[in-house]
Amino acid sequence: MSAHGSIPVLRIGSTLLASIQVELRDTIADAFQEDILQTIAKTGATGLVIDITGLEMVDSYVGRVLTNTGRMATLMGTHAVVVGMRPVVAATLVRMGFRMEGVLTALNVDAGLALVSELIARRHGAGR
C-alpha cells in the first residue's frame, strides 16, 4: 500500500484500488496521477479502479486528471475504471459540456472490480 497526500492505493489481487476520500487539490491530483502510473509499472497491475465516491465536486481540471489517468493506465496495458461518481457530479459534468472520453466508468467499487475481472478474462480468452 502506498499513499500520496491522502489517497490510499490498495492492492486487490492484480488490481489496484485508489480511493479518493478528500477534496482534491490540483497539486495532489497531479501527484496522484504520477504515483498511480509508477505503482502500475512497479506492481504489474492489470486492473485499476479509481473510486471517486468521496468527491462532492469534480471540475474540468479534476475531471481531466481522472480521465487522463485512466487513459494513461490503459495505454500501459491496464484496465482502468472510474467508479462511484455522485449524481450531482455526473449532472454537472454533462451540463458543462465535459466529455470523459476514453475511460470506462462503473456505478461502484464492486461493479468496477467485476468489470475489470471481466475485461482481464476476455483479454486472456481472446489470446488463446
Binding site: 462532492e56 465536486m57 469534480v58 481540471y61 457530479v89 449532472a91 454537472t92
Partner: peptide, 17 residues
C-alpha cells in the same frame, strides 16, 4: 438543491482557477 449547489460551486472553481 444539491444540483444547483454543485453547479455554482463548480462554476466558482472554474472561474477562480
Amino acid at each position: 438543491d444539491p444540483f444547483a449547489t454543485a453547479a455554482i460551486t463548480t462554476a466558482t472553481s472554474e472561474l477562480c482557477r
